Simulated assay, not measured.
Amino acid sequence: MRVKLGKHGNSLGFVVPASVVREEALEAGQEYELTVAANGGFHLLPVERPVWRPDLSIDELLAGLPEGPLKYEDIPEYRPVGRELDW
Rank of each mutant, 00 (worst) to 15 (best):
G82K: 00
E84N: 03
P80R: 05
H8T: 10
L56S: 14
D55I: 11
K71L: 02
D55N: 11
S19I: 07
W87L: 14
P46F: 00
V20K: 05
W87M: 13
R22V: 02
P54E: 10
F42V: 03
E84R: 03
E60Q: 09
R53V: 04
L34M: 09
I75R: 08
P17T: 02
L5F: 07
A28T: 07
E48V: 04
D55Q: 12
P46N: 02
K4H: 12
S11H: 13
E33Y: 05
G41L: 02
L45H: 01
E67L: 00
G29N: 04
R49W: 15
P69I: 00
E48N: 10
R2F: 05
G40Y: 07
R2L: 06
P46H: 00
S57I: 06
L70W: 12
N39I: 02
D59W: 03
D59R: 13
E31R: 09
R2S: 13
F42M: 07
E67K: 09
A38S: 12
L45A: 08
F14S: 12
E23G: 11
T35R: 13
W52L: 15
G6Y: 12
K7H: 12
A63V: 05
P46V: 01
K4F: 15
I75L: 04
E27H: 06
K7D: 08
N10F: 14
V16H: 00
F42W: 12
V81N: 02
Y78R: 01
R2I: 06
F42D: 01
P50Q: 08
E31I: 12
E33M: 14
E73C: 09
E27K: 06
R49M: 14
P69R: 00
K7R: 14
L26M: 08
H43S: 08
P54Q: 11
G41V: 02
T35K: 13
V47W: 03
A38F: 10
G82I: 01
L5S: 07
R53M: 10
L65R: 13
D86G: 08
G41F: 03
L26Y: 10
Y72Q: 01
